[in-house]
Design a binder for these strands. Structure first.
Lengths: 137, 137
DNA sequence: AGGATATTTGCAATGTTGTTGCAAGTTTTA
DNA sequence: TAAAACTTGCAACAACATTGCAAATATCCT
């Protein structure tokens, strides 16, 4: 049984070639993917627009999540934990390797809580660490 | 004595209208600013390119720093601590308010260290917390 | 299975954001 | 104040992202 088919159906999405293929890429990927990565890895089989819309749909459904970066790019990665529509729970640390430039979800490293000044109510936290990854060390 | 003039001179920058005005915006701002905010608040008195270059110059000199965001935008904020050319020390937490949408530097909240899996060497960490700020609570 | 309905895709056009080279203008230096 | 150094604005360009709409595809229902 195809895992990707399962995921799509569970989220009430029509099953199309594009969605299956793009979901596959995420399931296989070690790290996070940018829009450009997906275009490359699909050999431009799908229109740029389709890729944008597919990514947006996946984010809306809680299948993938966005990762903050300091440069002006958007990265996406699978939600490993139980995310639902409108409710992301990706409280793990992201790691960006300065050498191979991959962005990796450290699923087992949770973002620590911090004490905020009076009056600030935290809802979600994100943490990005840059450095050298285990393959490039 | 103008504070902005001081800062510019200290960093060996020519004093121009654009730089003074943009620096003023940062000195007055409660939170972080995007390129678009600056254009709006200066009434497009300066060319888009000038704003881009001014921001870049300020970042290079360590006067302002970039803030990571999940959407595809770059935010800038004053460096409150002693940053020098090429050496930023902005290891504080950033807070994004879901209500007023402002991004605020929590200068007194430092990013905590986390234990990474074997083989990962951290160089820099960034942390972004979203929620409700002290003015919107 | 097959046709009606709903959804998705691709194309074209358009918008937004950021960059570069160069001439003209401004600031600094001495 | 004049020369040198630096900054600005314009124009052109490039990359990235969004929208409307008609054609294609998937789902639903009998």
């Amino acid at each position: 049984m195809d895992e990707n088919l399962d995921i799509l159906k569970k989220n009430g999405l029509s099953v199309t070639d594009g969605r299956k293929k793009i979901l596959d890429l995420f399931l296989d990927a070690e790290g996070a993917l940018a829009h450009a990565d997906i275009e490359k890895q699909t050999d431009a089989a799908f229109d740029r627009v389709t890729v944008y819309r597919t990514l947006q749909t996946f984010v809306d459904k809680g299948i993938i999540h966005q990762i903050p970066t300091t440069d002006n790019s958007i990265l996406y990665a699978l939600c490993k934990h139980n995310c639902e529509e409108g409710h992301h729970h990706d409280n793990h640390v992201h790691f960006i390797c300065n050498n191979c430039n991959k962005t990796i979800c450290l699923d087992d490293v949770t973002v620590p809580e911090v004490k905020l000044p009076k009056g600030f109510k935290p809802i979600q936290s994100a943490m990005v660490v840059t450095g050298v990854c285990d393959e490039c060390k």
